[in-house]
Amino acid sequence: MEILYLLIPLSAVLVFGIIAVFGWAVHRGQFDDLEREGERILAIDPDGVDGDQSSSKGQPEQSPDRQSGHS
């Protein structure tokens, strides 16, 4: 029974913390335009290749011993 004296205030603090984080996210505009972000991930982006990926031109990397022909 004594544990309730700890758990009830602790859960109240947790609930207030969650409400504070949600309020902060709403105030910062995290939930303003959900449709655009949902469409953005489906759109084809031709410039979406990283710099290290564009240098290989789709060729898989090979280990140095396979490039020289040794097995």
Rank of each mutant, 00 (worst) to 15 (best):
E39T: 00
R28N: 13
A20K: 12
Q59D: 09
S56L: 15
D32V: 10
D65A: 14
G38M: 06
S68N: 05
V49T: 11
S11F: 15
V21N: 05
W24I: 04
V15A: 15
R36S: 15
L7E: 13
D32G: 08
A12G: 14
Y5A: 11
P46F: 01
M1V: 11
L42I: 02
R66Q: 08
A25T: 10
S68D: 05
A25P: 06
S56D: 14
G29K: 03
H27S: 13
G69H: 10
I18L: 13
Q67A: 14
S11Q: 14
G58K: 06
H27T: 10
I8F: 12
V13D: 02
I19L: 09
P60W: 00
F31D: 07
V13Y: 03
S55D: 12
L34P: 00
A43V: 02
Q59G: 06
L34K: 02
E37Y: 05
R66F: 01
L14R: 12
V26Q: 03
I44N: 02
Q30M: 09
Q62A: 15
M1T: 11
L6Q: 06
S54L: 07
G58C: 11
H27V: 09
Q30K: 09
E2P: 02
P64F: 06
D52W: 06
S71D: 15
G69Y: 09
L4S: 10
G38D: 05
F22H: 12
E37F: 07
R36Y: 08
Q59T: 08
L14S: 15
H70Q: 11
R66D: 03
V13I: 15
P60K: 02
L14A: 13
